[in-house]
Simulated assay, not measured.
Amino acid sequence: MSETSPRLFIVSPHFDDAVFSCGALLAAHPDAAVCTVFAAPPEQEMHTEWDEKSGFTSARQAIHARTREDDLALEVLDAIPLRMPFRDDQYMDSPSIARLAAALEETIYRSTANTLLMPLGLHHEDHVRVFEACCEILPRLSHLTWFAYEDAIHRCTPGVVQARLADLAQRGIVATPACPSASHTIDLARRTQLKREAVNAYESQLRAFGADHYDDVFAAERYWQLSVGRRGKK
């Protein structure tokens, strides 16, 4: 990859979010870093409804299996996995926004990335938490190129994308429709195929969503370039 090419760092709330939302983009950018925020098991063994739907009998079994699924998916896309020691909302031990932002900023700073992708933070509490942390970091790392990706599946909730764009404007963050890369060395058909292979690696999560409820992951990926502007009036 040339020095002028985007060196991607994608912030993924859960193991599957970066691939579900940005898999075709990842296919076009080998060696992109995918940083999964909520990658740690709970300290105490527990059993949740989502893990049960996914086919697991315990949280630790779920995290072990989901890590393996993520390894397989990112291998398909030649992406580099990074994992943070935080627990997702279902395990009732969510980090504060400040703590999450500090850890994310340090991880980004240590990387060689010049292009950051964060979730729009739609609908799901964990996605919202990651979005808030990224918004805290963005003004301090505004020398990097920032994009937000529309969270696959969650973006289907009516009105959530529009509400988030309005929220960004109130924060003084300008969101413009854009793509992180204008040219691709891999054609669209191949990128689509690689994404589908990667998505299929997340067997447990596809099982939990149900066969008729994850079609959106194969719809067009959508991105918004972010820049710090003037804070909107309330």
Results as ranks from 00 to 15, higher is better:
V130R: 03
V19R: 04
L8R: 02
T36E: 05
C134F: 03
L168V: 07
F131P: 00
P6I: 02
A98E: 14
P41F: 09
T176P: 03
V128E: 06
Q61P: 05
A28W: 01
M1F: 12
H29Y: 07
V34E: 04
T36L: 07
C22R: 02
G55R: 05
D51I: 08
A198H: 01
A169C: 09
L144P: 01
S12K: 04
A166S: 10
V128I: 15
D151Y: 00
S183E: 09
S21Y: 00
G23T: 09
T112K: 07
L122H: 02
Q90K: 11
Q193G: 15
R110T: 13
R60A: 11
A166Y: 08
G23I: 03
I80M: 09
P13H: 07
R129N: 10
R7H: 12
T157C: 01
R140V: 13
A208W: 02
L165T: 02
A175F: 05
R66I: 03
L206H: 09
A28C: 11
D151P: 00
S111V: 14
S96Q: 07
P119K: 06
G121V: 04
H47D: 15
L104Q: 05
L194P: 03
G229V: 05
R66N: 04
H184R: 12
S94Y: 10
R196N: 14
P95N: 03
I153T: 01
G23V: 06
D187F: 12
D93V: 11
L116G: 07
P95A: 08
S21V: 00
R7E: 14
Y109M: 11
L117P: 00
R68P: 08
D17W: 02
F147K: 05
R155A: 01
E197L: 15
C35W: 05
A189K: 12
W146K: 08
A182Y: 04
A18T: 04
A152V: 00
Q205E: 14
V130A: 04
S2A: 15
H127F: 13
A219E: 07
A18E: 01
T67R: 11
F56P: 11
L72W: 04
A101H: 04
S12H: 06
H124W: 11
E132I: 14
A65V: 14
E52G: 09
I10D: 10
I186S: 11
L168I: 08
R196W: 15
C35N: 05
R83K: 08
V199W: 02
W50N: 03
F15E: 06
I137F: 02
T107R: 08
H124I: 13
A166M: 07
H127P: 02
L165Q: 10
F209Y: 10
R66V: 02
R60Q: 13
A32N: 10
L120K: 00
E106S: 12
P158W: 00
A18G: 03
T145F: 05
S142M: 14
A102R: 10
R207I: 04
A182H: 08
I153K: 00
N200R: 15
R191C: 10
E221R: 05
R222H: 09
M46K: 05
L116W: 10
F218G: 01
C22S: 10
Y202F: 14
T4L: 07
P177G: 09
Q205N: 11
I97R: 13
C22L: 08
N200M: 13
F147Y: 06
R140P: 03
N200P: 08
R222V: 03
L82S: 12
A98F: 14
